[in-house]
Design a protein around this nucleic acid. Structure first.
Lengths: 219, 219
DNA sequence: CTGGTCACTCGAACAACGATCCGGTGGAGG
DNA sequence: CCTCCACCGGATCGTTGTTCGAGTGACCAG
């Protein structure tokens, strides 16, 4: 009796729950990438049978949706800042979070309706409204900022994180070999110039914000 | 003899080639979406065995890469236009093509190194350079414009094309039900306001181009 | 103590997938 | 006629997401 471990500890950790599944899924995605996430591997890390997961979660896609929303909990919602500083901080943290979990880039093509994402979108809309942005510029601003950060993170994750050095070298060589086909690209392209993703992101973001700000003055 | 059909016609169409495989893949993707593309179904449409495809193509990912690049052939490269008009046209056609093939949104997370994509990127860089855009604004402009169009198409394809009406209604209902949690989103959000994706896209694009243009004057 | 309910677990199995192996086939060239 | 070789495809392997149905143990009414 005293020597018999409880079934709970045999399987490692607290009882299975949706939260534990999602947390472990994020850890697995961070460690091994999107294509290495399978229900069996996830269950193994949780110390359970793979089919057990389906009691807590309907499909694998649900796990991905939940994992994608979960990482946005790390994006703080700004407080007591002027609208432009707040938006800048939100979008910057948004991007940093996406880049910290590069697998998220591959999941951006699915509806993001989790509570964390919605709360941050709500802040974005609310801040723009409070700043005096009105339709049609309001929707354009919210869409533009979201789309810009999504596109930026997607492209950077594709190249700097997901693509191995082998792929990047092959790409460089490929373009160097066809230098006369793509003259401008070879002379000024991203693989030639030492590019600064952070600086480029800030330039683009400020151009967008300048445009939004200009609509406030003129109505 | 005269009644015996040639083996070629029995299997339907001209001999198998990489080009035919890619064309049929695009047609299949257009008709049924990304997750319905399998090597077996693709082979069936081509009237061949599934394993035959692997003689012309190394992996399924190759098919996807080729299909993704193939659709960019429909994006004309502007000629004889002032830089801003040319860039506007290129980016607009870029977006239209992505939206005409909504499955492409899910593939944007992979390196785009096909000849069609590279040629259009080359035009973008070349036009910006000719317009007088210099570093660090050059990279920022090229990245910003690409990322913006990618993000816009990705988000719009996600919501207006890939998500069925059922999903959209559920989303609307979900947000309406939590109206107090997301006040700004409920009042001004994209599912409340009748949003105009095209107009929003143009606003964002012009804000970016205004920013780029301003860097030319000031150096 | 008993019997039963209910949340939860999991081994076995299924259909479908990407990919490989290896034996064909048919036309071109010697 | 034989040989070569680009091209084809049936059989098959390992893996995937998901379902089915049989369990297990805690808890509760009687």
């Amino acid at each position: 009796m005293w020597l018999r471990t409880s079934g709970r500890e045999e399987r490692g950790g607290p009882p299975l729950s949706r939260q534990r599944i999602v947390d472990e899924a994020v850890a697995l995605l961070d460690a091994e990438g999107a294509d290495r996430l399978t229900m069996r591997r996830l269950a193994e890390r949780l110390g359970t049978g793979s089919t057990t997961l389906y009691w807590h979660v309907k499909t694998k896609d649900d796990v991905l949706d939940l994992a994608l929303d979960a990482i946005f909990a790390a994006v703080p919602i700004p407080e007591d800042e002027r609208w432009r500083a707040g938006v800048t901080r939100l979008i910057g943290d948004w991007r940093a979070t996406l880049l910290r979990h590069p697998w998220s880039a591959a999941l951006l093509g699915r509806p993001m309706l989790g509570p964390n994402v919605l709360a941050r979108s709500d802040y974005l809309y609310g801040t723009l409204v409070a700043a005096g942005v009105v339709e049609p510029h309001l929707t354009a601003a919210a869409f533009g900022l979201s789309n810009f950060v999504i596109g930026s993170a997607l492209m950077q994750a594709t190249w700097l994180v997901n693509a191995d050095a082998e792929t990047r070298d092959a790409a460089r060589q490929h373009m160097d070999h066809q230098r006369d086909h793509y003259p401008a690209l070879a002379a000024h392209g991203p693989l030639t110039v030492a590019d600064d993703w952070d600086a480029s992101f800030e330039y683009g973001l400020n151009w967008l914000l300048d445009g939004v700000e200009a609509t406030i003055a003129t109505g």
